[in-house]
Amino acid sequence: MSRGKRRPRWDRHAIRAAVHRAGSTLSAVAREAGLEGSACRVALNRRHPAGEAALAQFLNVSPQILWPGRYPSKPASPSGSNQESTSAPSPIGEAL
């Protein structure tokens, strides 16, 4: 196993710290996205798709990277399935 470039582990404290290092607050990020001021704070503790999307956009990462447990990777579909043509490409694959 190689010790290449490691991805940062995102927990609620790391997300909050990254927002603050970028010179903003959770409430400001939410309001700039047109959401209620508490939306991003809620997203740190439980599922809130709009708050998650606002934070991910502000931090320039996908929600799947910030919350891999909330966005499990899709299992491979059986061969011959027509579902592949209708699903969007996963942004996680780009990071690998």
Rank of each mutant, 00 (worst) to 15 (best):
M1R: 13
S2K: 07
G4F: 03
K5R: 15
R7K: 15
P8D: 08
W10V: 08
R12V: 01
H13C: 05
A14Y: 01
I15D: 01
A17M: 08
A18H: 04
H20Q: 15
R21A: 14
R21N: 12
R21T: 08
G23I: 10
G23A: 12
T25I: 08
V29M: 09
A30K: 06
A30S: 09
A30V: 08
R31A: 14
E32Y: 01
A33E: 08
G34Q: 05
G34I: 03
G34F: 02
L35H: 15
E36C: 14
S38R: 15
A39V: 13
A39R: 06
A39C: 13
R41L: 14
V42C: 03
A43C: 07
N45D: 15
N45L: 06
R46P: 11
R47M: 10
R47L: 10
P49M: 05
A50V: 11
G51H: 12
A54F: 07
L55P: 03
A56N: 04
L59I: 13
N60L: 04
V61N: 03
S62H: 04
P63W: 00
I65R: 13
L66T: 06
L66P: 04
W67V: 01
R70A: 08
Y71F: 14
P72T: 06
P72D: 05
P72L: 02
S73A: 10
S73N: 10
K74A: 05
P75G: 04
P75C: 00
S77C: 11
S79E: 08
N82Y: 00
E84C: 00
E84G: 03
T86I: 14
P89M: 01
S90P: 02
S90M: 02
G93K: 15
A95Q: 09
